[in-house]
Design a protein around this nucleic acid. Structure first.
Lengths: 185, 185
DNA sequence: AGCTTTGTTCAAGATTTTTTGAACAAAGTA
DNA sequence: TACTTTGTTCAAAAAATCTTGAACAAAGCT
């Protein structure tokens, strides 16, 4: 029934040493920003690969479970760190890594940071309300002060984001033209 | 022998609702940047407090273990997020929170990010070396390409940090200047 | 329709991280 | 010195997170 025994010859080949080493870097990077190892592995292998990879290539070459690949790709897609590439005459999904640092950062921030930041204002207000019950009026004043510090932090953070994104390149007008070596990438 | 029984009356009192709520925000924030709950709790309580707090006040009011307080304060000190305040005639260490957002961010980045980033260059070189053993020359060329992308990312990131810090330094005017009423009790 | 391929979901297992508390150290006090 | 206070360390327990794989769904093929 199965003329070809599962996957053909060299697709599930073991990783080359340089690939392992490269993937290790991404695993580190992932853990640095609080993402699980499997996510780093998947993105790392895609980053190494010369062609789009399929679900089962990821599973087999990395030696991780289908569940991990599925969930990993799901999150990476959500972050915009991985894109589906349609390949004619092939039913499988093929994935390629997003290579624009700016888009990677933006996706990560949008997905993992901004929601928390944005809910902050209402949380501060909530504390303000609770604070009305504090009997010690000096303490109450002090706490209001601290809340306004927190307010300031939030606003600063929000103002920071666009600046960061601009510095990462997309907005050419803000770019520093002295050290602009795009040649190699 | 001890006219004052340890800490005066209401120091190990249960947390007020507004304090709990405030601390909750810091716990969230901590987890957002990958720090354990206890760290958020400690910093949060210090942030609420009107006076410097001692080790055992933190332990008792938060209801966490001595080990957690000790390790938590250790890390917070390392990050520069908490400072020791010397109090005359008192053997205990008293802690106050760092309130400058810029210093908080800088401490965090210095401690948790920069080391990884800085070791990146040599890791990339290591992959380059391993890559010499790749037989498929087209793949080898492709991988070199990707490595240079990685290089670019690292450099951009490093250039980003000073920009961020500068953006955080600007608004001195809203900083809390009325927090000098520390002296009491 | 029935069979296969492709991918998702989720409960249970495995692993990692965090917390705890008892033993220890350091330094003040009497 | 012996005793107390204050804080640290670290192995083990607890909790949180990640991974696995089997059951399921969706869609193509014959």
């Amino acid at each position: 029934m199965h003329p070809t025994p599962q996957t053909s010859i060299s697709n599930s080949a073991a990783l080359a040493p340089w690939e392992t080493s490269m993937i290790e870097m991404f695993v580190r990077a992932a853990s640095l920003i609080g993402l699980p190892r499997s996510i780093g592995e998947i993105y790392g292998l895609l980053f190494c690969a010369r062609q789009p990879l399929t679900f089962d290539e990821l599973e087999q070459r990395l030696g991780i479970s289908r569940g991990s690949v599925s969930q990993g790709l799901k999150l990476l897609r959500q972050l915009g760190a991985v894109k589906l590439q349609y390949i004619a005459g092939n039913r499988k999904d093929h994935y390629v890594p997003e290579l624009s640092m700016k888009r990677l950062v933006r996706g990560f921030v949008r997905d993992q940071f901004s929601p928390h930041i944005e809910s902050g204002e209402s949380r501060i207000d909530q504390v303000r309300v609770l604070l009305d019950d504090e009997r010690d009026s000096a303490l109450r004043e002090h706490a209001l002060q601290r809340l306004s510090t927190l307010d300031t932090w939030q606003r600063r953070f929000q103002r920071l984001l666009p600046i960061m994104m601009a510095a990462l390149g997309g907005a050419k007008f803000l770019e520093n033209q002295s050290d602009q070596e795009d040649t190699v990438i």
